[in-house]
Computed example of a mutant assay.
Amino acid sequence: MSIEHEEPGHGHSPAAWTTVIIMLVAFAIGTVAFFLHQPIIVWSSVGLLVLGLIVGWILGKAGYGVRGPKYVAKAHD
């Protein structure tokens, strides 16, 4: 008996990659700024982190998410 499961996509989409890259850059900047005692830059990086979430959400709604019409999944070998 075979049961077919639909793969959720695991976030391999332009929306997911863009979100992760923006958030990683924000986290790296915030870490260095925290180490150098620069609170303005730390809080700016927190803002950039939130901006990354918003950009990912917007791209997902624009169709670039896993199940979006503008996303074409690549075949895995």
Rank of each mutant, 00 (worst) to 15 (best):
Arg67Gln: 06
Val66Phe: 04
Glu4Ile: 15
Leu24Trp: 11
His5Asn: 13
Gly11His: 09
Phe27Thr: 15
Pro39Ile: 13
Gly65Ile: 04
Ala73Thr: 04
His76Ala: 11
Ile41Arg: 00
Met23Ile: 15
Ala16Trp: 11
Ala75Gly: 07
Gly30Asn: 00
Thr31Gln: 02
His12Ile: 05
His12Trp: 07
Ser13Ile: 12
Ile21Leu: 15
Ser45Met: 01
Phe35Asp: 02
Gly63Asp: 01
Gly47Trp: 07
Leu59Trp: 01
Ser45Thr: 03
Ala73Phe: 08
Gly47Tyr: 06
Ile3Ala: 08
Met23Ala: 15
Trp57Pro: 01
Gly68Thr: 05
Trp43Tyr: 06
His37Gln: 12
Phe27Ala: 15
His10Glu: 11
Gly11Tyr: 07
Gly60Met: 04
His5Tyr: 14
Leu51Trp: 02
Val72Trp: 10
Ala28His: 01
Ala28Pro: 03
Lys74Tyr: 07
His10Leu: 15
Leu24Arg: 04
Val72Lys: 15
Thr19Ala: 14
Lys70Gly: 06
Phe35Ala: 13
Ala75His: 03
Tyr71Pro: 00
Pro69Gly: 08
Tyr71His: 14
Gly11Cys: 11
Phe34Val: 00
Val55Phe: 04
Ile58Asn: 00
Pro14Arg: 11
Glu4Arg: 13
Gly52Arg: 04
Lys61Asp: 01
Gly52Met: 06
Pro39Ala: 08
Glu6Leu: 15
Thr18Gly: 13
Ala73Ile: 05
Ile22Met: 13
Pro14Asn: 10
Gly68Arg: 02
Leu53Met: 07
Phe27Asn: 09
Pro14Ser: 11
Val55Glu: 03
His10Cys: 13
Ile54Met: 06
Ile22Pro: 07
Ala26Ile: 12
Asp77Ser: 12
Pro69Lys: 06
Gly56Lys: 02
Phe34Tyr: 07
Val46Thr: 05
His12Asn: 13
Phe34Ser: 10
Pro69Gln: 05
Trp57Gln: 00
Ala15Gln: 10
Ser13Tyr: 10
Ile58Gly: 01
Val20Ile: 15
Gly52Ala: 10
Gly68Gln: 03
Phe35Lys: 05
